[in-house]
Design a protein around this nucleic acid. Sequence first.
DNA 1: TGTACATCAGTGAACGCGCGTTCACTGATGTAC
DNA 2: TGTACATCAGTGAACGCGCGTTCACTGATGTAC
Lengths: 210, 210
Amino acid sequence: MSWTRNGETRSYHHGNLREALMQATLDLIAEKGIAGVTFAEAARRAGVSAAAPYRHFRDRDELIAAVATAGFDRFAEVLKASWQEGRPSPAAAYERMGRAYLDFARQHAAHYIAMFESGVPLEAHEELQLAGSRAFAVLREAAEVLVAHMPVAGRPPALMVALHTWSLAHGVASLFCRADGARRKLPMTPDELLEAGFLVYLKGLGAPSD
Amino acid sequence: MSWTRNGETRSYHHGNLREALMQATLDLIAEKGIAGVTFAEAARRAGVSAAAPYRHFRDRDELIAAVATAGFDRFAEVLKASWQEGRPSPAAAYERMGRAYLDFARQHAAHYIAMFESGVPLEAHEELQLAGSRAFAVLREAAEVLVAHMPVAGRPPALMVALHTWSLAHGVASLFCRADGARRKLPMTPDELLEAGFLVYLKGLGAPSD
DNA sequence: TGTACATCAGTGAACGCGCGTTCACTGATGTAC
DNA sequence: TGTACATCAGTGAACGCGCGTTCACTGATGTAC
């Protein structure tokens, strides 16, 4: 048996409910913020009954964790793609990655919120924790290459550089790149702010400027 | 008429309900996160009926905004106190202020969440916006002094320095200083990470190291 | 290729619960005289 | 200093609503033979 709903034909079995619920969650975050995410509303938007989500997620936290996990996977891909193996130079590629970071925060604001501001405990969701680590690993590997191109004397630890980069980028993203009303005003673009910060920081490290 | 409740005597009129509701909100944030804040529960903890909060706050957002506003005021005081007019040197005082920033994020985690992760729109609450600006002004004034002690040639804009500082400190605080389960693991203390970042950054600016 | 059957994914009705919100009310406080 | 009265801050009962959650169920799918 099958019938139409919202102009689309679908059978008794949704077939793709898990993904539909995750998409609904992203829409809800974008529209109402993380507090606007409920099982009932996500089910409604996916066109199924309120009990259906329980076949795929234990509770709201698990749904949000799944969305955050997918976000981290996508984030890792975006960062990796922007790094381009450090071409044409590690410093140039690193800055490009910084812009990609902010682009992600802007274009996938709902994912970014699920990843960093959802309040879902990391320990309780191993998949999420691993996905987060994989994304950070991209940043860290880039920092390794960046650092390897510096003079041996006074070469900084790559992990530290990666953590500083992450902190600065996250700070800029979460203060100045939000889509909601909590965004702070800025007399320049967030990209300019982050890039300028990177340049100063790299100079402080004694890095070749390109 | 007066009677006892929870071992304390209080009259029909609470006398300090506004503050009691704000304190209850802080406790709720600390215990359950921002999503755990409800009018009903705050009233319950303050020992009044569910209708009482309406005499002081229009809705939940206004309550949270009031808490965030008070948080920014306190934050500004803390930063100002740590800056100590830039003694003994602007660089040393600036770093001390960075530690004070992280201390605040840790010791007043609930305030910090209300200030930066509550999802309350800034535009809708002018008092909140002003309090936020006042806090940032402390940071900015410190940056002015710091910059003024640098060689005129290549002296960076103080506003930019302040924004970089804020971004880095907020990034470290929000990634690594949280009290909830969303805190990331770190192979050093957040203070060390932030201080090292400052030092590199200041060096990149060409600042005197003390 | 067809049939029987197990399994799976979604239904819809039901329930309790807590929250937001309104309302007429009432006890306490402050002030004018 | 005492009294009358206006104002204020809290009460408690009531209501609707949406959410979370459970349950026996049923339609669809896949697989063994």
